[in-house]
């Protein structure tokens, strides 16, 4: 038996580095603005270069706000063993806020301002047994 196959829900969102996963965004060479996911151009009206290039984003941030998604989203969303989950808005610095699921933290423990780090986790298994991963945020210092 070889290692179980894995893939991400969408290509080009996450890069697995030796130091852990990182989100792949863009940084404009002209005005320095960061974006997520990657952008085809730069919507900053003051930017004249409009030259975004792929860039890895910070893998830690602080929780800006959150909610508990209580009902099952429509079928494009897939999750084995459905249960309500936390969705957070995470400030990564560089003027960039990113939404994502939270893991390794209970609703009663969530605090706006807490430090979170990026992880990847399987959402579901494909029919052929491939584990399909998404990115999530978990309290910094949590082993996962």
């Amino acid at each position: 038996m070889g290692e179980a196959a894995e893939r991400f829900v969408v290509e080009g969102l996450v890069e697995q580095t030796s130091a852990g996963p990182r989100l792949i965004g863009s940084r404009c060479r002209g005005c320095g603005t960061f974006y997520f996911p990657q952008k085809a151009s730069c919507p900053n009206p003051a930017c004249t270069d409009k030259a975004p290039v792929a860039a890895l984003l910070p893998d830690q941030g602080t929780l800006y706000s959150y909610t508990l998604q209580r009902y099952q989203p429509p079928p494009l969303f897939r999750m084995d063993g459905w249960e309500p989950y936390l969705l957070g808005l995470v400030d990564l610095g560089e003027g960039l806020q990113v939404m994502g699921m939270l893991t390794g933290v209970k609703e009663q423990e969530v605090r706006i301002g807490m430090t979170l780090r990026l992880v990847t986790e399987p959402l579901y298994c494909d029919d052929d047994g491939t584990a399909v991963l998404t990115y999530k945020f978990t309290p910094a210092g949590t082993a996962l």
Partner: peptide, 24 residues
């Protein structure tokens, strides 16, 4: 694919419209 936000918000995290308002 990742060029479509309305695809990403569903497949990557299941972000419903009420979730956006709830975060606010």
């Amino acid at each position: 694919d990742r060029s479509d936000n309305d695809f990403l918000r569903w497949v990557a995290m299941g972000a419903t419209n009420p979730a956006y308002w709830a975060i606010e």
